[in-house]
Protein backbone atom coordinates (compact mmCIF):
# COMPACT_ATOMS: atom_id res chain seq x y z
CA UNK A 1 0.00 0.00 0.00
CA UNK A 2 2.79 2.37 0.99
CA UNK A 3 4.67 1.45 -2.18
CA UNK A 4 1.57 2.20 -4.25
CA UNK A 5 1.22 5.67 -2.74
CA UNK A 6 4.90 6.36 -3.31
CA UNK A 7 4.57 5.20 -6.90
CA UNK A 8 1.54 7.45 -7.49
CA UNK A 9 3.36 10.42 -5.95
CA UNK A 10 6.37 9.87 -8.21
CA UNK A 11 4.13 9.61 -11.28
CA UNK A 12 2.16 12.75 -10.40
CA UNK A 13 5.37 14.67 -9.68
CA UNK A 14 6.85 13.79 -13.05
CA UNK A 15 3.59 14.71 -14.78
CA UNK A 16 3.55 18.07 -13.01
CA UNK A 17 7.04 18.86 -14.29
CA UNK A 18 5.90 19.33 -17.92
CA UNK A 19 3.40 21.88 -19.17
CA UNK A 20 1.62 19.08 -21.05
CA UNK A 21 1.01 17.33 -17.74
CA UNK A 22 0.38 20.32 -15.52
CA UNK A 23 -2.49 21.66 -17.61
CA UNK A 24 -4.62 18.47 -17.41
CA UNK A 25 -3.87 18.04 -13.71
CA UNK A 26 -5.04 21.59 -13.00
CA UNK A 27 -8.18 21.24 -15.14
CA UNK A 28 -9.14 17.84 -13.73
CA UNK A 29 -8.49 19.07 -10.18
CA UNK A 30 -10.69 22.11 -10.77
CA UNK A 31 -13.35 19.92 -12.33
CA UNK A 32 -13.47 17.62 -9.30
CA UNK A 33 -13.44 20.55 -6.86
CA UNK A 34 -16.24 22.39 -8.68
CA UNK A 35 -18.32 19.21 -8.79
CA UNK A 36 -18.10 18.87 -5.03
CA UNK A 37 -18.73 22.56 -4.37
CA UNK A 38 -21.77 22.57 -6.67
CA UNK A 39 -23.43 20.02 -4.39
CA UNK A 40 -23.55 22.62 -1.63
CA UNK A 41 -23.35 25.99 -3.30
CA UNK A 42 -23.95 27.63 -6.65
CA UNK A 43 -23.97 31.41 -7.22
CA UNK A 44 -27.70 31.26 -7.97
CA UNK A 45 -30.19 28.51 -7.06
CA UNK A 46 -30.47 26.13 -10.03
CA UNK A 47 -34.23 26.11 -10.30
CA UNK A 48 -34.76 29.84 -9.87
CA UNK A 49 -36.22 30.99 -13.15
CA UNK A 50 -37.13 34.55 -13.96
CA UNK A 51 -39.35 35.29 -16.91
CA UNK A 52 -38.45 38.98 -16.89
CA UNK A 53 -34.70 38.50 -17.13
CA UNK A 54 -34.15 35.90 -19.86
CA UNK A 55 -31.04 35.91 -22.06
CA UNK A 56 -29.24 38.48 -19.94
CA UNK A 57 -25.69 39.48 -20.75
CA UNK A 58 -23.01 38.65 -18.21
CA UNK A 59 -23.29 40.83 -15.10
CA UNK A 60 -22.14 40.87 -11.46
CA UNK A 61 -25.26 38.93 -10.51
CA UNK A 62 -25.17 36.44 -13.40
CA UNK A 63 -21.53 35.84 -14.25
CA UNK A 64 -22.22 34.28 -17.62
CA UNK A 65 -25.73 35.70 -18.11
CA UNK A 66 -29.01 33.83 -18.06
CA UNK A 67 -30.66 31.36 -20.45
CA UNK A 68 -34.13 31.27 -21.98
CA UNK A 69 -35.84 30.55 -18.66
CA UNK A 70 -33.90 33.19 -16.79
CA UNK A 71 -31.79 30.55 -15.02
CA UNK A 72 -28.16 31.35 -14.29
CA UNK A 73 -25.86 29.86 -16.96
CA UNK A 74 -22.80 29.73 -14.69
CA UNK A 75 -24.64 27.86 -11.95
CA UNK A 76 -25.96 25.30 -14.42
CA UNK A 77 -22.50 24.74 -15.85
CA UNK A 78 -21.14 24.27 -12.32
CA UNK A 79 -23.84 21.73 -11.50
CA UNK A 80 -23.36 20.11 -14.90
CA UNK A 81 -19.76 19.30 -14.08
CA UNK A 82 -20.81 16.84 -11.39
CA UNK A 83 -23.14 14.97 -13.76
CA UNK A 84 -20.41 14.78 -16.37
CA UNK A 85 -17.88 13.64 -13.78
CA UNK A 86 -20.26 10.91 -12.66
CA UNK A 87 -20.84 9.78 -16.25
CA UNK A 88 -17.10 9.75 -16.97
CA UNK A 89 -16.27 7.74 -13.85
CA UNK A 90 -19.05 5.19 -14.37
CA UNK A 91 -18.26 4.81 -18.07
CA UNK A 92 -14.57 4.28 -17.36
CA UNK A 93 -15.37 1.68 -14.69
CA UNK A 94 -17.75 -0.22 -16.98
CA UNK A 95 -15.26 -0.05 -19.85
CA UNK A 96 -12.39 -1.24 -17.64
CA UNK A 97 -14.39 -4.16 -16.27
CA UNK A 98 -15.66 -5.25 -19.70
CA UNK A 99 -12.26 -4.73 -21.27
CA UNK A 100 -10.53 -6.90 -18.67
CA UNK A 101 -13.20 -9.56 -19.09
CA UNK A 102 -12.65 -9.68 -22.85
CA UNK A 103 -8.87 -9.63 -22.49
CA UNK A 104 -9.10 -12.52 -20.04
CA UNK A 105 -11.19 -14.46 -22.55
CA UNK A 106 -8.88 -13.62 -25.45
CA UNK A 107 -5.70 -14.82 -23.72
CA UNK A 108 -7.42 -17.77 -22.11
CA UNK A 109 -5.73 -21.16 -22.38
CA UNK A 110 -8.95 -22.59 -23.79
CA UNK A 111 -8.25 -22.08 -27.48
CA UNK A 112 -11.89 -22.31 -28.47
CA UNK A 113 -12.87 -19.53 -26.06
CA UNK A 114 -9.91 -17.40 -27.08
CA UNK A 115 -10.64 -17.77 -30.79
CA UNK A 116 -14.36 -17.13 -30.38
CA UNK A 117 -13.85 -14.03 -28.25
CA UNK A 118 -11.49 -12.49 -30.82
CA UNK A 119 -14.13 -12.95 -33.53
CA UNK A 120 -16.90 -11.62 -31.29
CA UNK A 121 -14.90 -8.52 -30.34
CA UNK A 122 -14.05 -7.86 -33.98
CA UNK A 123 -17.69 -8.17 -34.98
CA UNK A 124 -19.14 -6.08 -32.15
CA UNK A 125 -16.54 -3.33 -32.37
CA UNK A 126 -17.96 -2.05 -35.65
CA UNK A 127 -21.32 -1.19 -34.05
CA UNK A 128 -21.29 2.56 -33.32
CA UNK A 129 -22.06 3.58 -29.74
CA UNK A 130 -24.74 5.98 -30.97
CA UNK A 131 -26.71 3.07 -32.43
CA UNK A 132 -26.45 1.11 -29.16
CA UNK A 133 -27.64 4.18 -27.27
CA UNK A 134 -30.58 4.69 -29.62
CA UNK A 135 -31.67 1.06 -29.27
CA UNK A 136 -31.37 1.24 -25.49
CA UNK A 137 -33.37 4.46 -25.46
CA UNK A 138 -36.40 2.72 -26.98
CA UNK A 139 -37.31 0.99 -23.70
CA UNK A 140 -35.31 3.11 -21.24
CA UNK A 141 -35.98 6.62 -22.47
CA UNK A 142 -33.43 9.36 -21.87
CA UNK A 143 -31.23 8.47 -18.92
CA UNK A 144 -27.64 8.54 -17.72
CA UNK A 145 -27.67 4.74 -17.79
CA UNK A 146 -28.11 4.78 -21.57
CA UNK A 147 -24.89 6.80 -21.98
CA UNK A 148 -22.95 4.71 -19.48
CA UNK A 149 -23.99 1.33 -20.89
CA UNK A 150 -23.59 2.27 -24.55
CA UNK A 151 -20.23 4.02 -24.09
CA UNK A 152 -18.90 1.57 -21.53
CA UNK A 153 -19.67 -1.31 -23.87
CA UNK A 154 -18.10 0.30 -26.92
CA UNK A 155 -14.99 1.58 -25.12
CA UNK A 156 -14.56 -1.75 -23.30
CA UNK A 157 -14.36 -3.52 -26.67
CA UNK A 158 -11.86 -0.96 -27.91
CA UNK A 159 -9.80 -1.41 -24.77
CA UNK A 160 -9.74 -5.18 -25.20
CA UNK A 161 -8.56 -4.86 -28.76
CA UNK A 162 -5.83 -2.35 -27.92
CA UNK A 163 -4.56 -4.30 -24.90
CA UNK A 164 -4.63 -7.72 -26.54
CA UNK A 165 -1.13 -7.84 -28.11
CA UNK A 166 0.54 -6.85 -24.84
CA UNK A 167 -1.56 -9.33 -22.86
CA UNK A 168 -0.79 -12.11 -25.33
CA UNK A 169 2.92 -11.39 -25.03
CA UNK A 170 2.72 -11.63 -21.25
CA UNK A 171 0.60 -14.78 -21.40
CA UNK A 172 3.25 -16.53 -23.49
CA UNK A 173 6.14 -15.43 -21.29
CA UNK A 174 8.38 -17.68 -19.23
CA UNK A 175 7.24 -16.31 -15.89
CA UNK A 176 3.61 -17.11 -16.66
CA UNK A 177 4.62 -20.58 -17.72
CA UNK A 178 6.56 -21.12 -14.52
CA UNK A 179 3.68 -19.78 -12.43
CA UNK A 180 1.29 -22.16 -14.18
CA UNK A 181 3.62 -25.10 -13.70
CA UNK A 182 3.77 -24.19 -10.02
CA UNK A 183 0.04 -24.66 -9.89
CA UNK A 184 -1.12 -21.01 -9.99
CA UNK A 185 -4.79 -20.56 -10.87
CA UNK A 186 -5.90 -18.76 -14.01
CA UNK A 187 -7.28 -15.82 -12.04
CA UNK A 188 -4.06 -15.47 -10.03
CA UNK A 189 -1.93 -15.44 -13.18
CA UNK A 190 -4.24 -12.93 -14.83
CA UNK A 191 -4.25 -10.38 -12.02
CA UNK A 192 -0.70 -10.92 -10.83
CA UNK A 193 1.11 -11.12 -14.16
CA UNK A 194 -1.04 -10.03 -17.07
CA UNK A 195 -2.89 -7.02 -15.69
CA UNK A 196 0.29 -5.19 -14.54
CA UNK A 197 1.63 -5.60 -18.07
CA UNK A 198 -1.38 -4.07 -19.79
CA UNK A 199 -1.97 -1.40 -17.15
CA UNK A 200 -0.08 1.40 -18.95
CA UNK A 201 -1.94 0.77 -22.22
CA UNK A 202 -5.21 0.53 -20.32
CA UNK A 203 -4.75 3.79 -18.44
CA UNK A 204 -4.00 5.73 -21.61
CA UNK A 205 -6.89 4.17 -23.51
CA UNK A 206 -9.27 4.78 -20.61
CA UNK A 207 -8.37 8.44 -20.34
CA UNK A 208 -8.99 8.85 -24.09
CA UNK A 209 -12.31 7.06 -23.59
CA UNK A 210 -13.16 9.44 -20.77
CA UNK A 211 -12.77 12.36 -23.19
CA UNK A 212 -14.93 10.62 -25.77
CA UNK A 213 -17.55 9.97 -23.09
CA UNK A 214 -17.86 13.71 -22.42
CA UNK A 215 -18.34 14.33 -26.15
CA UNK A 216 -20.83 11.45 -26.36
CA UNK A 217 -22.77 12.90 -23.45
CA UNK A 218 -23.22 16.23 -25.22
CA UNK A 219 -24.18 14.55 -28.51
CA UNK A 220 -26.59 12.01 -27.04
CA UNK A 221 -28.20 14.59 -24.78
CA UNK A 222 -28.75 16.83 -27.79
CA UNK A 223 -30.37 13.91 -29.64
CA UNK A 224 -32.70 13.43 -26.67
CA UNK A 225 -31.45 10.02 -25.53
CA UNK A 226 -28.83 11.14 -23.00
CA UNK A 227 -29.19 13.09 -19.79
CA UNK A 228 -32.92 13.72 -19.17
CA UNK A 229 -34.05 17.32 -19.40
CA UNK A 230 -34.01 19.08 -16.05
CA UNK A 231 -30.81 17.36 -14.94
CA UNK A 232 -27.88 19.76 -15.24
CA UNK A 233 -25.09 18.64 -17.56
CA UNK A 234 -22.78 20.32 -20.04
CA UNK A 235 -24.56 18.63 -22.91
CA UNK A 236 -27.86 19.84 -21.49
CA UNK A 237 -26.58 23.42 -21.33
CA UNK A 238 -25.32 23.12 -24.89
CA UNK A 239 -28.51 21.53 -26.20
CA UNK A 240 -30.95 23.94 -24.58
CA UNK A 241 -29.19 27.05 -25.81
CA UNK A 242 -28.20 25.90 -29.28
CA UNK A 243 -31.62 26.60 -30.80
CA UNK A 244 -31.18 30.25 -30.04
CA UNK A 245 -27.67 30.53 -31.33
CA UNK A 246 -28.58 33.10 -33.93
CA UNK A 247 -30.19 35.41 -31.39
CA UNK A 248 -27.92 35.04 -28.36
CA UNK A 249 -24.58 33.77 -29.62
CA UNK A 250 -22.74 34.78 -26.45
CA UNK A 251 -24.68 32.42 -24.18
CA UNK A 252 -24.04 29.45 -26.44
CA UNK A 253 -20.27 29.87 -26.44
CA UNK A 254 -19.64 28.81 -22.83
CA UNK A 255 -20.90 25.21 -22.62
CA UNK A 256 -19.01 24.27 -25.79
CA UNK A 257 -15.87 25.89 -24.46
CA UNK A 258 -16.14 23.97 -21.18
CA UNK A 259 -16.59 20.66 -23.00
CA UNK A 260 -13.66 21.34 -25.32
CA UNK A 261 -11.31 22.27 -22.46
CA UNK A 262 -12.33 19.20 -20.44
CA UNK A 263 -11.83 16.84 -23.39
CA UNK A 264 -8.47 18.38 -24.28
CA UNK A 265 -7.41 17.95 -20.65
CA UNK A 266 -8.45 14.29 -20.60
CA UNK A 267 -6.55 13.61 -23.83
CA UNK A 268 -3.41 15.36 -22.60
CA UNK A 269 -3.75 13.52 -19.29
CA UNK A 270 -3.57 10.20 -21.11
CA UNK A 271 -0.42 11.21 -22.99
CA UNK A 272 1.27 12.63 -19.90
CA UNK A 273 0.35 9.55 -17.91
CA UNK A 274 1.81 7.29 -20.56
CA UNK A 275 5.12 9.16 -20.45
CA UNK A 276 5.14 9.25 -16.66
CA UNK A 277 4.48 5.55 -16.05
CA UNK A 278 6.88 4.28 -18.70
CA UNK A 279 10.25 3.53 -17.06
CA UNK A 280 11.90 3.98 -20.48
CA UNK A 281 10.86 7.64 -20.83
CA UNK A 282 10.79 8.49 -17.14
CA UNK A 283 14.20 8.17 -15.49
CA UNK A 284 12.78 9.24 -12.14
CA UNK A 285 10.70 6.09 -11.99
CA UNK A 286 13.79 3.95 -12.51
CA UNK A 287 15.56 5.78 -9.71
CA UNK A 288 12.57 5.34 -7.38
CA UNK A 289 12.34 1.69 -8.34
CA UNK A 290 16.00 1.21 -7.59
CA UNK A 291 15.64 2.84 -4.19
CA UNK A 292 12.61 0.91 -3.01
CA UNK A 293 13.59 -2.34 -4.77
CA UNK A 294 10.85 -3.16 -7.20
CA UNK A 295 9.40 -6.56 -6.53
CA UNK A 296 10.03 -9.30 -9.06
CA UNK A 297 6.55 -9.42 -10.47
CA UNK A 298 7.40 -9.57 -14.10
CA UNK A 299 6.66 -6.04 -15.20
CA UNK A 300 9.98 -4.50 -14.33
CA UNK A 301 11.38 -3.77 -17.74
Amino acid sequence: MKAAIGYAATVLRSMWRHAGGRFPLVVLGLWAAISVVSLFWTPQPLMRTDGYHTWQSPSAEHWLGTDGTGADVFSWLMAGSRTDLLIVILTVLVAAALGLLFVAAMVSRHTALAGASVVVVDALISIPTVLIALVLAVPMGASIAVIVIACGFGYGLNLARVARPQALLAAQSDYVESAVSNGASGAYVFFRHIVPNILPVMLVQLSLSAGTAVLAESGLTYLGVGVPSGTPSWGHSLATTVRFITVYPLTVLWPGLVVTVAVVALNLFGDALRDAIDPVTNPELRRAAGATRMEEDGHGR
Partner: peptide, 30 residues
Protein backbone atom coordinates in the same frame (compact mmCIF):
# COMPACT_ATOMS: atom_id res chain seq x y z
CA UNK B 1 3.90 20.77 -29.74
CA UNK B 2 1.85 23.15 -31.88
CA UNK B 3 0.83 20.42 -34.33
CA UNK B 4 -0.02 18.10 -31.47
CA UNK B 5 -2.19 20.75 -29.89
CA UNK B 6 -4.02 21.33 -33.19
CA UNK B 7 -4.85 17.65 -33.53
CA UNK B 8 -5.97 17.28 -29.91
CA UNK B 9 -8.11 20.42 -29.86
CA UNK B 10 -9.61 19.53 -33.25
CA UNK B 11 -10.68 16.15 -31.91
CA UNK B 12 -12.02 17.60 -28.66
CA UNK B 13 -14.57 20.01 -30.13
CA UNK B 14 -18.17 18.79 -29.78
CA UNK B 15 -19.74 18.49 -33.24
CA UNK B 16 -22.63 20.59 -32.04
CA UNK B 17 -20.31 23.42 -31.14
CA UNK B 18 -18.21 23.43 -34.31
CA UNK B 19 -21.43 23.57 -36.29
CA UNK B 20 -22.66 26.48 -34.22
CA UNK B 21 -19.45 28.42 -34.57
CA UNK B 22 -19.55 27.95 -38.33
CA UNK B 23 -23.15 29.17 -38.42
CA UNK B 24 -22.05 32.23 -36.47
CA UNK B 25 -19.31 32.85 -39.00
CA UNK B 26 -20.97 32.04 -42.31
CA UNK B 27 -24.68 31.45 -41.70
CA UNK B 28 -26.89 33.46 -44.01
CA UNK B 29 -28.59 36.27 -42.18
CA UNK B 30 -26.79 35.72 -38.88
Amino acid sequence: AAYRLVSIVGGAIPALWSGMLLILLFGRGV
